[in-house]
Design a binder for these strands. Structure first.
Length: 317
DNA sequence: AACACGTGGAT
DNA sequence: TATCCAAGTGT
């Protein structure tokens, strides 16, 4: 089944798509996985250098899985949401354990990987393996919301109605469907942007329900503003930066220096430990997580009863 | 289902 | 300067 939006968007994409490294024919499925993790809530421009460095160091899932999760967190640098680094490491480990070191092709198997949700599973299946899936990210949802539903912004969470619409739009063949998925996403990223959509030059401007209706302002519930200054997130970020930048375990004093409010500081550190991003080594000494692998290959750790700090170091599942 | 979760560029 | 927002996921 063909749709009036297909040709203009596919033609626009073939003429205007960006040359991104994870889209080149020689990009491995693993490279696509790495790109998708990094691109979650993070702009392309910031991902580019991190992506290249990451794949240079860990060209395969097995290479990453063989290293400590803490090294993944360190390599993640300032990309933000460092739990993604831990989950990517966990996904690589799962690929080694369950999929012969390969990126699984089945959508259900992808979805079972840590850090892979509805969007990312569909994106990997579509972009890396050329399968036919609806790929609903924030860009696609915005384009559909405007062009089809005539609203400036989509609902907060993906709705069954959005999935139905996306399914209706999905071209019949896998090859065209996978191109369509990246094409409509690219349109949202470059033209149908959130703030100042470039309707002049939009290939579907003549068909866009929102534009045709006079671009009515958003009327839904207030969209969540992200405060940051003064939050636990900021404190966590500072604490983790200290750990990242130190080759050695750090002691309490170094961590205490990043935030003056002790209760919030302690809560943030506890949170990092609970999330598996930080590992208590001994009383008042912390490091990035070594994971189960390093025990046998590097400096052995004592496991007597001298540690008093309560901690549950479990790689997030 | 509402929230927590980082970071920095753009407006 | 303050706010918005960028290829979401897990709980």
């Amino acid at each position: 089944m063909s749709h009036a939006l297909h040709e203009p968007i596919l033609d626009w994409y073939s003429a205007n798509n960006r040359d991104l490294p994870w889209r080149t024919p020689d990009a491995s499925a693993w490279a696509v996985v790495v790109s998708e993790f990094m691109l979650q809530q993070t702009p392309v421009a910031r991902v580019l250098p991190a992506y290249t460095a990451w794949l240079e160091r860990w060209p395969t899932p097995a290479a990453l899985a063989a290293d400590e999760p803490g090294e993944a967190v360190r390599m993640w640098g300032r990309l933000g949401y460092p739990r993604r680094a831990l989950r990517l490491h966990g996904a690589a480990t799962a690929m080694v354990d369950r999929h012969d070191g390969e990126v699984p092709r089945e959508h259900a198997d992808l979805l079972a990987l840590p850090g892979v949700g509805e969007y990312t599973a569909a994106a990997i299946a579509s972009f890396a393996f050329g399968q036919r899936h609806i790929v609903l990210d924030t860009n696609v949802r915005r384009v559909i919301g405007r062009a089809i539903d005539g609203v400036e912004y989509p609902p907060q969470a993906t709705t069954p109605a959005e999935r139905r619409t996306a399914t209706t739009l999905l071209p019949a063949t896998a090859e065209t469907a996978s191109t369509w998925a990246v094409a409509i996403m690219e349109l949202g990223a470059l033209v149908c942007t959130a703030k100042s959509p470039k309707c002049v030059g939009c290939p579907i401007a003549a068909l866009c329900a929102w534009r045709l209706a006079g671009k009515p302002a958003y009327t839904g519930p207030p969209r969540r503003g992200q405060t940051y200054a003064g939050t636990d997130r900021q404190v966590r970020g500072r604490l983790l930066a200290v750990l990242r930048d130190s080759a050695e375990p750090v002691d309490q004093a170094a961590l205490d220096a990043v935030w003056d409010e002790p209760v919030q500081r302690a809560r943030a550190l506890d949170g990092l430990v609970a999330d598996g991003l930080v590992e208590p080594l001994a009383a008042g000494v912390y490091r990035l997580p070594a994971g189960p692998l390093s025990d046998s290959t590097s400096s052995p750790r004592r496991s007597d009863s001298s540690e008093s700090a309560s901690n549950s170091v479990s790689p997030s599942r």
